[in-house]
Amino acid sequence: MTALLLDDVRYAYPDGHQALHGVSLGIAPGERVALLGPNGAGKTTLVLHLNGILPASGLTGSSGTVSVGDRTVDPKDRPGLAEIRRRVGLVFQDPDDQLFLPTVAEDVAFGPANLGLRGAELAARVDEALAAVGMSDVKDRAPHHLSLGQRRRVAVATVLAMRPDLLVMDEPSSNLDPQARRELAEIVLGLDVTLLMVTHDLPYALQLCARSVILDDGRIVADGPTRELLADADLLARHRLELPYGFAVPVS
């Protein structure tokens, strides 16, 4: 049983750029995996495949299958896509892309309301998700009045409110101050979900994910325990990945 299974996923953008050259990957339920890679490696493109946003239906130049639990993503199967999107919760890199409604509570309610929840059940779902990220007290504020760290936590809540089977986070630590970064890590560690975290923040990957996958130029080039991958300086250097200055992989 796998939570997520990718089989030879290939994708070319409409402008002809080939972003994915056959990616295969399996993630077990409850596992936390970091997807590492330099800028332009195809990480975000891959993430958009996980809930069927790519490939757009009718587009040529793509092949391969993506399965979430017992379901396979099929761009033509609209009800199936809705279920896939419930199972896979995508947290975008920029919370401003995610948050668009006037208040935090409304934005968190958007997903579950699309699932058909309403009234007290919907309110309970919103409270639960906001509590999980420690943002209950900003419920009625406007998202754009919050700090970046707070917005990113709210963005996580908008996805948690849909009770996803798989949580996918795109660069969760980027641009956060050290304290916000640590708080977010604590929140993620406290969640009981399967996680795929896209990042090039290697210490963050080490802290949160036991396993890592390196994607470069649209191909998976390494897959193993995070600690081992990060200890392999040559491997990192070949794929434009670097540990921060002064950081050494702690010996357990």
Binding site: N51, I53, L90, F92, Q98, F110, G111, V159, M162
Partner: peptide, 13 residues
């Protein structure tokens, strides 16, 4: 487009 994708990801129809 990213905003739209984020909305689609949360079941917007």
């Amino acid at each position: 487009e990213r905003v739209f994708l984020a909305m689609r990801s949360r079941g917007y129809t």
